[in-house]
Design a protein around this nucleic acid. Sequence first.
DNA 1: TCAATATATGAACAATCATTCATATTTTCA
DNA 2: TGAAAATATGAATGATTGTTCATATATTGA
Lengths: 107, 107
Amino acid sequence: MNDCSYIDKPLSLDTLFELSEFFKFFGDTTRIRIIEILMSGEISVNEIAEKLQLGQSAVSHQLRILRTAGLVKPRRAGRTIFYSLDDEHIGLIFNTGLAHILHKKGA
Amino acid sequence: MNDCSYIDKPLSLDTLFELSEFFKFFGDTTRIRIIEILMSGEISVNEIAEKLQLGQSAVSHQLRILRTAGLVKPRRAGRTIFYSLDDEHIGLIFNTGLAHILHKKGA
DNA sequence: TCAATATATGAACAATCATTCATATTTTCA
DNA sequence: TGAAAATATGAATGATTGTTCATATATTGA
């Protein structure tokens, strides 16, 4: 039932560091907004910039961070590059966090 | 089955900002290590500082952040204050992130 | 009440980081 | 080939943040 019970396993300092680094990627408004957009499917850099009303450079910088971290992946089509979520865990973490704050709001 | 499907609901800028702020709490090594310790049960400030080999002040500062955010709660017993996780979602998010990076490592 | 213990907090400093600006790279189409 | 379009990147800057040091608050026991 619960396949997420790592509680009792001893976690190395290294693993805990990686874990905090991983959550950092979700800890920025621009990146969270990009991730939310990507949850609806793949989309180009310019379209993201338009939707977020942000500069192309800012979006590209954040996409590089997300790409390097393995959260999103690019697909080239001509001169356009489409981005999409790389891993199914990304959406799950997004939604679990969302469930938490919506739950807190409702309470 | 999946009670985390908020994908299609329109999310306000405000909610997305809160969500990124929420993930920020997991995006620091010291806080993640504190959360991991707290997953085994309540524990005092000094004990946390000892386990982490950190100054009492640093731990107290991070605990205040976690407490203000509603991730941990204090219980006073004499002059000792014991902290524990406030919400069941916290452990779930911790473990989902952990599952992700362990999965990536195994691949 | 006074000293000792446990925790909290304010200020300061160093480090990290997101954005902007300018420019580089890559691809298409005329 | 050469201009235009889409994306990437390096440097600079302003803002945020974690830690440390010093000190404050709170509680216990003598």
